[in-house]
Design a protein around this nucleic acid. Structure first.
Length: 452
RNA sequence: GGAGAGGUGACCGAGUAGGCCGAAGGUGCUCGCCUGCUAAGCGAGUGUACGUCAAAAGCGUACCCAGGGUUCAAAUCCCUGCCUCUCCGCCA
């Protein structure tokens, strides 16, 4: 058991047989100082989210922890002083035997105190890591998605002189989506794209990457699709949401649930220069999610899959600019739908619907005439310094002082759901799909996907 | 997979019979001075985290890839892991 309590120092540590020992050394989520001195801020954030957490217990552990730090450091100070004295005395040839004995004794006390400290520290960190980020003051208070507020809409619902079909019907008729074979190959919640369907998916990836790189100023990156535990903890997926993740067997790696994870961690444990901020990255990756707890929900079509493609936008911003950057990020994501000419609306998520790591989130919801609903196609969030604190992403101010950056990200967009939106919005009476103008350059000259 | 070499501060690079090394020196950077501009020159400064403190200063502790061990004392010794480089093999 003691082996599990070894002093936290980042990085995972593989044991000889491949099982690993994990620690989150030094990782925190909420600013411990704020928690200590102004705990009402954290309490309020928790209340607004409808979350419960024993702050008082945490404060108690913190107090004990700091007392132990002081004890052990005082003893270490004494040890260092006496050790130096021994070194000096030895040169003069004096007898140091009783000092050595004394220090040997002191060493045992230090070890004992440090042992206690490790336990307290672990307990403290484990608690800190599962406190959600307090919502921004502009976030509406509410308990669930019905309390989200629509803040804008763009375009209009297209008119059809026939009954529009859901994308899964069209996709199977046109033989561009084959869920049955995907289920045979792997299982439920996977999809096999075929022919023009596969091309459409690929075209959208390239269209979005080009748009964000050429016109919105993002730098393209292509990150690893699996990451280690430290990375996953940095962005907040761990330790709380491990059951949502696909874990690689035999090694402490996970498939990424979103490019946010590897891309945000590009700058983990770094100190950035103030004048290089904001940094803007765009990445295409597949995303892997267990969708635990969604059994029976959205079982048809492209809506909810264990594996889907996404183009993701990530920003690293100065703290006083991050909310402006969030608005910009949202516009960059919206621009994709504007160019595809598809109707959507934007909601700000209420406190009860907000993700664990986020301070404020906008959802872009696209109109799906075949299902007669709006469906989330992008989620744009400001995490303020929540992820930056966990992943240690800092920047040096012009005065030389160091501060945490703010991190943001948003889908720009989810590819499968965009395919879904195109199929449903651009369907024709005879069951074909018209290719939106903006996408034609990416479709090898194809302007219509038709049956046969 | 087999055989070697190595991981020190923003960068380069010293530092092995363990102690006075948070760490020489150089470059870069910052501030000041100086030459009419440029180049050069002169002087000073220049890691991070935590704890203490109302705060700053100061003080203390820790950190020379990571974890563990030996010791009164480790960048320096031992063990384990990770990463990088070179050669061979294999492979997309």
């Amino acid at each position: 058991m003691a082996a599990c309590l070894h002093t936290p120092r980042h990085r995972l540590h593989f044991l000889a047989h491949g099982v690993q020992q994990t620690d989150y050394g030094g990782v925190k989520m909420i600013d411990p100082k704020i928690l200590r001195e102004r705990s009402e801020i954290i309490r309020e954030g928790l209340n607004k989210r409808g979350a419960t957490f024993d702050i008082d217990k945490l404060l108690e552990i913190d107090e004990n922890r700091r007392a132990l730090i002081q004890d052990s450091e005082k003893m270490k100070n004494e040890r260092n002083a006496l050790s130096n004295e021994i070194a000096r005395l030895k040169k003069t040839g004096a007898d140091v035997a009783d000092r050595v004995t004394h220090l040997r004794e002191l060493g045992r006390f230090i070890e004992k105190t440090e042992q206690e400290l490790r336990v307290a520290e672990k307990e403290w960190e484990d608690m800190l890591l599962v406190i959600p980020n307090p919502p921004h003051e502009t976030v509406p208070v509410g308990s669930g998605d019905r309390d989200n507020e629509v803040v804008k809409t763009w375009g209009e619902k297209p008119a059809f002189d026939f009954e529009p079909l859901p994308h899964w019907d069209i996709g199977e008729k046109l033989d561009i989506l084959d869920p049955k074979r995907a289920a045979k190959i792997t299982g439920s919640r996977f999809i096999l794209y075929k022919g023009s369907g596969a091309l459409l998916e690929r075209a959208l990836i390239n269209f979005m990457l080009d748009l964000h790189v050429r016109e919105h100023g993002y730098t393209e990156v292509l990150p690893p699709f699996m990451v280690n535990r430290e990375t996953m903890t940095g962005t907040g997926q761990l330790p709380k949401f491990e059951d949502e993740l696909f874990k690689i067997e035999g090694i402490d790696y996970f498939l990424i649930p979103t490019a946010e994870v590897p891309v945000t961690n590009i700058h983990s444990n770094e100190i950035l220069k103030e004048d290089e901020l904001p940094l803007k990255y765009v990445a295409y990756t597949p995303c892997f999610r267990k969708e635990a707890g969604a059994h029976g929900k959205d079982t048809r079509g492209l809506t909810r899959l264990h594996q889907f493609n996404k183009v993701e936008l990530v920003k690293f911003a100065l703290p006083d600019q991050s909310y402006d950057e969030l608005e910009g990020l949202l516009l960059d994501a919206e621009d994709v739908l504007k160019r595809l000419n598809i109707h959507y609306r934007v909601s700000v998520l209420c406190t009860g619907d907000l993700g664990f790591s986020s301070s404020k989130t906008y959802d872009i919801e696209v109109w799906l005439p075949g299902q007669n609903i709006y469906r989330e196609i992008s989620s744009c969030s400001n995490f303020e310094n929540f992820q930056a604190r966990r992943a240690k992403i800092r920047y040096r101010k012009s005065g030389g002082k160091i501060d945490l950056v703010h991190t943001l990200n948003g889908s720009g967009l989810a590819i499968g759901r965009t395919v879904m939106a195109i199929i449903e919005n651009y369907q024709t009476r005879d069951g074909s799909i018209v290719i939106p103008d903006a996408l034609k350059p990416y479709m090898n000259g194809l302007s219509l996907i038709s049956a046969g």
